Amino acid sequence: MGVGPRYDSGAGSAGGGRDGGGRGGGAGDDAEALLRARLRLADGQIETPPGLWDRIRVSGTAPAPAVVALPRRRPYAVALVVAAAVAVVALGVWWLVRPGPVTLRPAGPPPTVKVTVYNSEQACRTGRSLECALRLARDPRAEYAARGNSAGRVWHGDDLAAHCVVTDGRMVRDEAGVTSTRWYLVTSGQGVRGWLPGVRTRNTREVPECPAGQE
């Protein structure tokens, strides 16, 4: 951009423009004054864009942006989360303290009651002769002295394991005249299993009745 007429050294000499120190002071001042004038002219030519102030006023009065509230968690949703957490913790505790494998053992034989053989004949209360032996029957409802109704022999004072009793067996009378229809299903110390007439013991302990089909 031009800043006015160019002043060279010749013009300065012709016009006597040098000061006493030999510097050209007049040319510098004129250039500065011309530059200031041109800046003022340029500033005056700057125009405000049309509608600028209206847009500023509109933006200043615009409503504030709406704040969207986040949805609140419902109580039942929180309860479900808590319940699930408790279930997970309980499952973990159970896994840590879970019992070992359970072994099912077969049930043992039912308990028995001890009964003692009793012989009403005084002379047969000692010794183990055949004449003093007492019979264990195979069938409590058959004739006691029948040939085929013998399961084994016992003697006075023998301890037997009574499993159960029937109360409607064949009636038996002993040598003293005592009668009974009770028969005990017993096992002897030698493993002999049979039926002992009630008159051949003086049992004072309760023995369970035999279930149907075990007679």
Rank of each mutant, 00 (worst) to 15 (best):
P101I: 07
I46R: 07
E47Y: 12
A85S: 11
T126G: 03
A66I: 06
R135E: 09
G44K: 09
W95I: 00
T48N: 13
R73C: 11
V78E: 09
W95A: 10
P65K: 06
W53L: 09
A42W: 03
S129A: 12
R135P: 09
V67D: 05
V89C: 13
V97M: 02
V113S: 03
A62F: 04
I46G: 11
A69D: 10
G108C: 01
R55T: 10
I56V: 14
V81N: 07
L96W: 09
V102G: 12
A83L: 14
P75A: 01
A84V: 05
V68E: 01
R74N: 02
V78C: 09
P101F: 03
Y76S: 12
R73T: 14
A123Q: 13
G44P: 02
V86N: 06
V102K: 10
A90H: 05
E121I: 15
A62Q: 07
P49M: 01
L70I: 08
P106G: 12
V113H: 00
D43T: 15
S120K: 04
A85G: 09
L130F: 15
L130S: 15
E131I: 11
V86I: 09
G92M: 01
W53F: 11
L80E: 08
S59A: 14
P49C: 00
V102W: 12
A66Q: 05
Q45G: 14
A69M: 07
Q45W: 06
L70Y: 10
E121T: 11
A64E: 11
D54H: 05
L130I: 14
V102D: 15
A133N: 05
A90Q: 02
P106L: 09
A42T: 07
V115N: 06
V82C: 12
T48Y: 09
A77Y: 10
A87C: 10
A123W: 10
A107K: 06
T126K: 10
P71M: 07
A62W: 04
L91E: 03
A87H: 01
A79W: 08
R128G: 08
W53V: 03
L96E: 03
R98P: 02
R73G: 08
V102R: 10
A84G: 05
Y76H: 14
E47V: 15
T116A: 03
N119R: 00
R128M: 03
S120C: 05
A84L: 11
D43V: 13
K114T: 15
V113M: 04
A66F: 04
C132S: 03
A87V: 04
A77T: 14
G92T: 02
A133F: 06
V97K: 01
L91H: 07
G108Q: 01
R135N: 00
T61C: 08
S120R: 03
L80S: 02
Q122G: 11
K114C: 12
R128T: 14
G100Y: 00
D54S: 08
P99E: 02
L91Q: 13
R57I: 05
L134D: 00
A90E: 03
R125D: 07
E121C: 08
L130D: 15
V88Y: 00
